[in-house]
Design a protein around this nucleic acid. Structure first.
Lengths: 229, 229
DNA sequence: ACAAAAGTGTTAGGTGTACACCCATGT
DNA sequence: ACATGGGTGTACACCTAACACTTTTGT
């Protein structure tokens, strides 16, 4: 076929909004940039998509290069297409989010020189970020707040074994509101996808709480009607 | 600043999934392509985004050029970034959907030669579409089915004045299931955002139904808490 | 013994769902 | 008069939200 695409000096990038939960606070993964533009600024991990990789694959690669994290279940949530969002030219960015356990992957370590460091920052009281990353972050935050109520994303943020109080404090942190302890427990347990373990919490100076884990298999069974589409 | 973006021979496009409701059926707006690739195929209205326009603006322009429709409230819902989705090179597409009243804008008329014609097609029993447009359509359809339950999108599809039976048959068409008439009416009216008009249906050979219209102002008042973010 | 968090039930109000008949109108 | 869709109420099951005290454990 002899027809060619128009040449446009345009590129796409991906930006990743990675959430974690630590010390009762919701946090987001930032990098300190080591390249122009916005050198020395804080930013979301993001970079240009290569010509021979899918956007989904690029998001994985770029996150790895900038933070050392790999194989996260990232989900695209919005594409930002304003003409002047990047100072050097036309860059449309496809934004992704993911939620992870901070404890599990503590080794944040940029692989390339684009980032000087990668670190967790509480979502409240974020500094101004490079590019339009503040806007991107806000949209992601809004998205996960909404999803918390109808998808089991909370368990991606918690350790594999957790107490009901930890689960509740995560909900409270994300939603920014207090919840009733009895109602919260009743409701969570009523779903039937939490598996009570024989084990208990250790190393606390008060009555140890039962540990639970999220039973993905049961969840799938319970909600298969909704998932079918 | 002397730094330049890498040159990549890549472009972005937008594709629009426009839904309409007519004769008790949900329909989608297609074009018949008049250019390679996929000349003579049916496709969603879509084309390349220009270098100096935002992606949102491009979606409006392109829809207008291919179908004659303008100023629709289009909403981005997903970006398709596979490497080989376009036979001529790397094209990432940002997909939009909108819902409109078919009656109001009957004059479908391509402005450019890219499309030979534009027409409504029932969503059930769609032919195979160009590119990955079948996949794009499916995702849009899934999205509006979900949204129907928590956003007032139904009223974008109906004429300004409608009967409760029309509203119900729209819900039934989109969700592909029967609803209980009494419960449906009770629920809709209980929201308080439907304004009962003095007027009645005309030209029917049976008891004429009351006409209602969607009161956007009341809706906003009722749901301002949810909308606030 | 005290401090700290774990754990536990009941009630009242509201919401979703199932279900069947008479009414108004045009022909 | 008849055919067609318009319009209406009740009962039961379930879910939500409000609310406070006892129990366990480590120090």
């Amino acid at each position: 076929m002899e027809i060619h695409l128009p040449h446009l000096d345009s590129v796409f990038s991906t930006d990743c909004v990675i959430f974690g939960f630590e010390a009762g606070e919701l946090k987001v993964l930032l990098i300190e940039r080591n390249e122009e533009p916005f050198k020395d600024w804080y930013a979301l991990p993001g970079n240009i998509v290569g010509p021979d990789e899918s956007v989904d694959a690029a998001a994985q690669r770029i996150l790895y290069e900038l933070t050392g994290l790999h194989d996260l279940p990232m989900r695209q949530f919005h594409t930002f297409g304003e003409v002047n969002r990047h100072p050097q030219g036309r860059v449309v960015t496809i934004a992704y989010f993911a939620l992870i356990r901070i404890g599990g992957q503590k080794d944040l370590m940029p692989i390339t020189q684009y980032a000087r460091k990668a670190f967790w920052h509480p979502v409240n009281d974020l500094p101004t970020l490079a590019f339009d990353h503040t806007e991107i972050f806000k949209r992601a935050f809004k998205k996960i707040r909404a999803k918390l109520n109808y998808e089991p994303i909370a368990f991606e943020l918690l350790p594999e074994k957790f107490t009901l109080t930890q689960l509740q404090s995560l909900y409270e942190a994300v939603l920014s509101k207090q919840l009733d302890k009895r109602n919260f427990r009743k409701k969570m347990l009523s779903y039937g996808f939490l598996k009570e373990l024989a084990e208990k919490q250790k190393g606390v100076s008060y009555r140890a709480a039962k540990l639970y884990k999220f039973d993905r298999r049961k969840y799938a069974k319970i909600f298969q009607n909704e998932i079918a589409s």
